[in-house]
Nucleic acid binder design. Structure first.
Lengths: 231, 231
DNA sequence: ACTGAACGTTGCTCTTCGACAAACTCGCGG
DNA sequence: CCGCGAGTTTGTCGAAGAGCAACGTTCAGT
């Protein structure tokens, strides 16, 4: 295991208040690992024996029904803690995490979570902030799902990914990780067919451009209108 | 303000580890209040200046869209803490709480949350457990909403309320708070018309019996089948 | 360069469920 | 005891979107 550089953590909120030596200690206890696209970091219901920090890449957090259908609950971007079941006093993971793109994450044994929370100022605070944000996100998704028509939901989902991971290109803003129609339908509770039709229509209207597994939003403003912002 | 009795808290998880004197201190700082059916305890987006404990009654936690539609995110039963935005480092409430039945709640100023969490063993732990459970519940609702047909969602929603608040009667198990078809449709993202049709059909099939604003489940087993447990 | 698998498109049909409409009933306040 | 309003029921209609099917396209691996 190569020695990890302190600059990896020093700018991230959960660690930004700490001194060099403290960060060193934390890093020395961490395991770093790479995950190929499509690999599971952990699975729903399994023992929550470690917690994680995403250094690079993107994750999908999914839940599956007994019927075998999967729905994507949220995405995780670099710099975020995840798998922090312990913060909520759970001993199993409540959902499955899959690498949406090739990703790198640090992890620590669960027992260190309480130790970090007690020892390092701001660590617990930031963890709980993260959870609070996620709870809010999920509630928003839920309300959308319950009240909005499919087209608006899909538009909103694409916008959310764009805002979270978008990077400028010459044509517009590209979603920063590979994504299939099936993935989008799993976020919005619809079918890949319907998503395909919508994206085709939007492509004709000059709102998006999509290649296989990649989506570029060329006219974000129009997409916002479609998403039905303020009705 | 009448002096509150210590037995109010002594059996509840967040306080069960505490001594008599500590509970006295906590109670002396609490404000107790009654809320009529339909009254809001606090509203989404407002300053989270207090946190609460439901002593008696039932609450609906709702979120509303810009379009004015409301959806019910979850229900809260007696003995639960709520409005604990502070635990997630939020300074506004993320949703609105409405009394579903006449209810009584204690409340404390937000700043005491951290104090309680530090001073009283088990208090923070229990708060986070509550949040963890709710996060799980919401995720379940979300997956259901995304993958299940209306009938299954409604069946699941009725079952959930039955399990949470049901009380035995001679005819079956009655949901413990007033509930309209509109309320059920707000939980399941459908219309009151559809819910009315479903309940009528179930009534004919001998699965439920409903009077105005009240629902009794007469054949829970059949309802579980309808909810599509294990496909 | 070839092949198969994964991903995407499109047309058609069929069902579910939302929208609109109208009437009924229960329970409360005057 | 009456009238009003909130809650409920039931019917009809139409549109949104799921299901099914078939085909096209891109890519990774050999």
């Amino acid at each position: 295991m190569p020695k990890l550089d302190e600059s990896l953590l020093s700018d991230l909120p959960p660690f930004s208040l700490l001194e060099r030596g403290q960060i060193r200690d934390i890093l020395d206890q961490a395991v770093s690992r790479r995950y190929d696209e499509g690999t599971a970091i952990f699975r729903e219901g399994h023992d929550a024996d470690r917690f994680y920090l995403l250094l690079d890449g993107y994750l999908r957090v999914i839940r599956s029904t007994e019927g075998g259908e999967e729905i994507i609950v949220l995405h995780i971007s670099p710099g975020q803690l995840f798998g922090i079941a312990k913060a909520l006093e759970r001993d199993t993971y409540p959902a499955t995490s899959i690498a949406a793109a090739e990703s790198i994450a640090l992890s620590w044994p669960t027992r260190l979570w309480s130790e970090f929370a007690e020892t390092y100022p701001g660590f617990a605070t930031e963890s709980y902030k993260t959870l609070g944000r996620r709870l809010g996100e999920i509630q928003t998704t839920l309300t959308e799902m319950a009240t909005q028509a499919v087209e608006k939901r899909v538009a909103a989902a694409v916008l959310r990914m764009m805002n979270q991971s978008g990077r400028r290109t010459e044509d517009g803003i590209e979603i920063g990780f590979p994504i299939t129609r099936q993935n989008i339908s799993d976020m919005t509770g619809t079918t890949l067919h319907t998503v395909s039709r919508l994206l085709s229509a939007w492509e004709k209207a000059g709102i998006v451009a999509s290649r296989r597994k990649h989506v570029v939003v060329t006219n974000p403003h129009e997409l916002v209108l479609l998403s039905g912002a303020q009705g």
